[in-house]
């Protein structure tokens, strides 16, 4: 990490010679604390105080509170209730990922085909959730999806259903709420990938004898894979840490690990166990990132250069 940072420091890049020239070995050495390099010190301090220190505290607490050892982890992995919560978390996150993919892929694809004006409209539509508070949106869903909410009232007055559908306090509610929140994260990376795909390749495939559907699946779709993978990863990892939406829209059976952490922390006051849960969440996320980064270059979709 530190070598990457120093290599991109302005001092270094401004002295980077043109191609073909070999710099003296001494000049390549990272000199992080000269002039410009000092500018990152405030950020480093900030991260140390608000990120690294709490993380270390959580990690140590998960092994020491209330007793030193692996007790917290043993409790977690030996209890079906807790494992169910972990299973729920994965299942719901997986479903959210699947649904956002199914909705987001065609949406992103249509965006690449739309004329500039409509592309703008579609972009704003997908970004609107970004501009509203998560809490407000979730409460809005509670009002809309409840027994006397707009959706059920509407369906009943149309005569399509006789009694209200159970749309909240269960998995359906959680899915609806989370998919709406996650949709921009799914659409934007896919759109970014798709707009760079040369559509003439599809034309070439058709000229070579591929039916339009075959040309799409064999030429266009494979080229969207980096975007699709980035989307899925973003959505899945964000989803497993969700708290507000499942807490308000889900039922007791749909508890996710985020809710369990809050419950252990504020209701049961088992801080050590809550810390262990947080560590487990962190490790799972890390492992996923590593696995997926073997398939696609994640940095590219997070604003990195390569």
């Amino acid at each position: 990490m530190s070598s990457t940072v120093s290599a991109r420091a302005p001092q270094q890049s401004s002295t980077t010679p043109g191609a073909g020239q070999t710099p003296a070995p001494g000049r390549r050495r990272p000199r992080i604390l000269d002039g410009w390099g000092l500018l990152i010190v405030p950020l480093v301090v900030f991260l140390l105080v608000v990120f690294v220190a709490p993380l270390v505290t959580i990690l140590s607490r998960s092994f020491t509170d209330p007793t030193t050892g692996l007790d917290n982890y043993r409790d977690f992995f030996s209890s079906p209730v807790y494992l169910d919560v972990l299973g729920n978390t994965f299942r719901i996150s997986g479903l959210v990922t699947l649904v956002t993919l199914l909705l987001g892929f065609p949406y992103a694809y249509l965006m690449t085909l739309a004329p500039p004006f409509w592309r703008g409209v579609m972009l704003v539509a997908v970004l609107i959730p970004f501009w509203t508070s998560l809490l407000v949106r979730t409460f809005a869903w509670v009002l809309m999806l409840g027994d006397t909410g707009v959706v059920n009232q509407g369906l009943m007055s149309l005569g399509l259903i006789d009694e209200p559908l159970q749309l909240i306090r269960n998995q359906t509610g959680v899915l609806i709420g989370m998919v709406q929140v996650m949709l921009p994260y799914a659409v934007l990376p896919m759109f970014a990938t798709m707009r760079q795909i040369d559509r003439r390749l599809v034309q070439a495939a058709e000229g070579l004898g591929a039916r339009p559907i075959s040309a799409f699946w064999r030429v266009y779709a494979p080229l969207t894979v980096p975007g699709v993978a980035a989307s899925c990863l973003l959505v899945f990892i964000s989803s497993i840490g969700f708290y507000v939406t499942p807490a308000l829209l889900g039922g007791p059976k749909d508890m996710m690990i985020g809710e369990l952490i809050v419950q252990q922390l504020s209701a049961v006051l088992r801080w050590g166990f809550a810390s262990a849960l947080a560590v487990i969440l962190l490790v799972v996320t890390g492992v996923l990132l590593v696995l997926v980064s073997r398939i696609v270059n994640i940095g590219k979709f997070m604003g990195g250069e390569r």
Partner: peptide, 29 residues
């Protein structure tokens, strides 16, 4: 439609499929 015309086409921009090997590109048709 073009896919049933059985005409070979070469483009200025090559239009090779970047996710396939050279061999797979040629095998495509």
């Amino acid at each position: 439609p073009p896919y049933r015309r059985d005409l070979g086409m070469v483009f200025q921009h090559y239009a090779l499929f970047p996710h396939m090997s050279v061999w797979d590109n040629v095998a495509f048709p």
